[in-house]
């Protein structure tokens, strides 16, 4: 009989507490949209913040509320967008994947240095003293962007410039943030024509410090005035979709090769670009 008392006591206590919890749960339950959790599970969980929200969770909540577009996650791309769309019952707008591209061709050979830099080996530090290159707009080559990449999509090439593996790049924009010289920009992956220079120096000076600088000669503008303009001594592509295929050869007459196709057919690929990624 003695054994019954503790068993009953504990049983009753447990029952009391659990029924109390059940009652409290009924009273205090917080209604949460189940779609938030469903969408959250689809997202890449990188919490990179490329969507403009403080993480994947916040993005999921915003999408359900309608505060964020279905295709707002650049990392997940179309696949995630269409899944989210099917959960929410709306149609996903097609989204062109964006990738990071480097607007500088100041390779070790092309860009002249102004001295030997022995400071902290980061772009941010080198930028503070104006950089080790004569060009004050070009890539510093210490790889802050490579270190910022969460997806191992970037590496420093032999030429002293960063390169992007576009299959791995998710367009999250971490490298864009990391670059103190704002050389990296996100572009739609189908945009093949780019200006590979950010120098605002006037032509003669720009050419003096870097062989591959835009000297604002205007050849490309004459080739395709509706899509390319000159602005502050630099060619600027206003709308890449307005550049027809047949005008590309004329644009690529650029004397310094500062504008042109990013991806070229293999037979005309030059050594400065498309470097093989070193095995890590």
């Amino acid at each position: 009989m003695d054994i019954l008392i503790p068993i009953l006591t504990m049983g009753i206590l447990g029952l009391l507490f659990s029924s109390g919890l059940v009652l409290a749960y009924k009273k205090l339950r917080v209604e949460e949209d189940p779609r938030v959790m469903e969408i959250f599970e689809i997202l890449p969980q990188a919490n990179c913040g490329a969507c403009g929200f403080s993480g994947c969770r916040a993005f999921a909540e915003a999408v359900v509320k309608g505060a964020a577009p279905v295709n707002g996650c650049p990392v997940g791309g179309e696949e995630v967008a269409s899944k989210i769309a099917s959960i929410l019952g709306v149609e996903a707008k097609t989204m062109v994947k964006k990738v990071a591209r480097i607007h500088c061709r100041g390779t070790k050979e092309a860009a002249k240095e102004r001295g030997v830099y022995l400071g902290i080996a980061t772009c941010a530090a080198a930028h503070l003293i104006g950089g080790q290159k004569q060009c004050s707009y070009g890539c510093l080559g210490f790889g802050d962007c490579v270190r910022a990449c969460l997806f191992e999509a970037m590496w420093m090439g032999e030429d002293g410039l960063p390169h992007v593996d576009e299959t791995k790049c998710t367009g999250c924009g971490q490298c864009v943030e990391a670059c103190p010289r704002n050389i990296i920009e996100l572009h739609p992956i189908d945009q093949n024509i780019l200006v590979f220079c950010r120098s605002l120096d006037r032509g003669p000076l720009a050419r003096k410090v870097c062989k591959n600088a835009c000297i604002a000669c205007g050849i490309c503008v004459r080739a395709c005035p509706e899509a390319i303009v000159l602005e502050n001594n630099l060619a600027k592509i206003i709308d890449y979709k307005k550049i027809p295929e047949d005008k590309i050869p004329a644009i690529e007459k650029c004397p310094t090769k500062a504008i042109g196709r990013f991806h070229r057919p293999p037979e005309e690929t030059d050594s400065a670009k498309d470097q093989p990624r070193p095995a890590s």
Partner: peptide
């Protein structure tokens, strides 16, 4: 209980 209460 406290967790549920605070959450609400």
């Amino acid at each position: 209980l406290v967790e549920m209460f605070i959450r609400k």
